Computed example of a mutant assay.
Amino acid sequence: MRTALVIGTGLIGTSAALALAGRGVRVHLVDHDAAQARTAAALGAGTDEAPEGPVDLAVVAVPPAHTAAALAEAMKAGRARGYLDVASVKGGPRRELERLGVDLSAYIGTHPMSGKETSGPLAATADLFEGRPWVLTPTPGTDTEVLNLALELVALCRAVPVVMDADAHDRAVALVSHTPQLVSSLVAARLEAADDTAVRLCGQGIRDVTRIAASDPRMWVDILAANPGPVADVLAEVAADLDETVRALRALHTGDATERRGAARGVEGVLRRGNAGRARVPGKHGAAPAAYETVAVLISDQPGELARIFADAGRIGVNIEDVRIEHATGQQAGVVQLMVEPAAAQVLGAALRERGWALRP
Rank of each mutant, 00 (worst) to 15 (best):
P140E: 04
M113D: 08
H285N: 13
V163C: 10
R171V: 10
R261P: 09
H178V: 05
N275M: 13
G91Q: 14
G229Y: 11
A296Q: 14
V55Y: 01
W357N: 11
M339P: 01
G286K: 10
V55D: 03
L191N: 13
G274E: 05
A87G: 00
T142V: 11
L175G: 05
P282I: 12
D85R: 02
Q181D: 09
T125G: 15
A291W: 02
W134V: 04
A276T: 04
G78R: 02
V183D: 10
V146Y: 01
A168I: 14
V6E: 06
G46E: 00
G349E: 06
A16P: 09
G304A: 07
T118S: 15
I108Q: 00
V62G: 08
D103R: 09
A307R: 14
L153I: 07
A123T: 06
P133S: 12
T14S: 14
A313G: 07
T245E: 00
A328P: 05
L359M: 01
E96S: 13
A193D: 13
E305K: 09
P63L: 03
V318M: 08
H169F: 12
Q332D: 05
A288K: 08
A74M: 13
L271V: 11
L136C: 08
E145V: 06
D165I: 03
R23T: 11
F129D: 10
D222Y: 01
T14D: 11
D33E: 04
T125Q: 15
V135D: 05
R265P: 04
V55S: 14
R247C: 07
Q302S: 11
P140C: 09
G10T: 13
